[in-house]
Design a protein around this nucleic acid. Structure first.
Lengths: 246, 246
DNA sequence: TAGTGGTCTAGACCACAAT
DNA sequence: TTGTGGTCTAGACCACTAC
């Protein structure tokens, strides 16, 4: 029959039922109440016990299947894969990543001004050449050691960065508060040698290997909102991601 | 009202209707028949025209929303984001990536033997220390230029590599044919200097920056099936990925 | 044969955005 | 107020797996 996860539903909550199911199932897996390899009670039975229709139950479980936490096999049942799979790579800024990891960090704003878009920016941000864009350069330290040199560009009508304290607040937090909803981003990760300036700022030797990341982020309307060109000390940073085959 | 995509359904096909819808919508977007910013006809009307129920229609469109090709706004409608968003980073091997890009490539098998798992492999592949695992090292050339040095490890009971022609066939293709269904993978991308051997094999100078990628792949039962430790010439390869915020 | 997930239907009511 | 997507129901039939 399979394990019976403990799930309570609040039908007066604005949170969708399928999401309540998914959240509580996920917690049970992370808690260890549901161990890897456990078979979960079948969909029909589970839906009946919770007073849900089967499609709603399925929708909730599907979220966890998409995350790689559950595996369904036709004719067999649904099994817990395990909580060790990291979250699918989410759309977060480095600031968020570090803040949530509890590392002490500090950011120095090297420059923040409006420039005219050149050819490259015109392509990446989908604006005409010569259009005004914010150019923002920051150096980030973690545990008092230089870590990343970040160069961001944003069309000026996306957000006003005048007087914004970007040393304390992450760029993505500023964007969120300005009502910008980031939705998709294209990233390119590569490597190259540090030039003289990068080496000096990052406390490396010239020619040292750097991890590079460029990213264009789009809002929910499909508009290019931000283009970032960042370099990281290769000895202090790696990009981690989880791929899920559907 | 919005654009009316041209979609034909084959109800006798074993391909699910929602998938037929998604595939044809996607092609229309990539073709340019549906341009970025276009509003698609609303779900209800579209379902009616195709003789589908609304949930089935939604399921098809949801696939493209998840891929970042479409954006839905409550009270507004569904819009095409654009074909320029690359596919969400899928679980493909480098062999697949290159083959689909049409680049002429050649692979040299440097070694293929069974070794005993050390501590690191024990952790990554979730097998006891000392267990036999395949150790496979390959050098890949693209357009007659060295490109990547790939080291893979697999538990011996996953697949038998004796006599398998890994110069012609990609490792993932071999795994698929052996009935292994890859499902999720954790990747770590970083950078470091080339050591003497890597430099020689890749035609680089010692100390040149390399892009590194390690990956553990799990099958549909959550079992670790393959661990790869690869290095790429940084001047010839970057990792591209698309992030979608949900 | 029995049990499971995969797909599909034909509706319903609600929340939100534009008008 | 109208139109849109968001959610949900109560079934149905099928394909695959294990026994």
């Amino acid at each position: 029959m399979g394990e019976l996860p403990h799930i309570t539903l609040d039908r007066s909550s604005p949170v969708p039922l399928y999401f309540q199911v998914a959240r509580q199932l996920e917690r049970a897996i992370v808690d260890g109440s549901l161990a890897p390899g456990d078979r979960i009670m079948n969909e029909v039975e589970l839906a009946a016990r919770l007073g849900l229709s089967r499609p709603t139950m399925r929708q909730g479980m599907q979220l966890l299947v998409d995350k790689g936490l559950l595996v369904r096999k036709r004719g067999v049942g649904t099994q817990v894969v395990g909580p060790k799979i990291r979250r699918p790579f989410e759309l977060t800024s480095l600031h968020d990543d570090l803040a949530s990891s509890g590392q002490p960090q500090a950011t120095t704003v090297l420059s923040c001004s409006v420039i005219q878009a050149d050819e490259e920016l015109s392509v990446e941000l989908q604006v005409p050449v010569g259009d005004p864009v914010w150019s923002l350069e920051r150096l980030r330290n973690v545990r008092d050691e230089p870590f990343a040199l970040m160069h961001n560009f944003l069309p000026v009508d996306v957000v006003d960065l005048h007087g914004v304290d970007l040393a304390t607040r992450g760029l993505y937090a500023v964007l969120r508060e300005a009502g910008v909803q980031l939705r998709v981003a294209n990233q390119r990760v590569g490597a190259r040698r540090a030039d003289a300036r990068e080496a000096r700022l990052l406390g490396e030797r010239r020619g040292a290997p750097l991890l590079t990341m460029t990213r264009t982020a789009f809002d929910s309307a499909g508009r290019a909102v931000e283009y970032g060109d960042h370099v990281y000390r290769a000895d202090r940073y790696t990009v981690e991601l989880t791929l899920v085959d559907r």
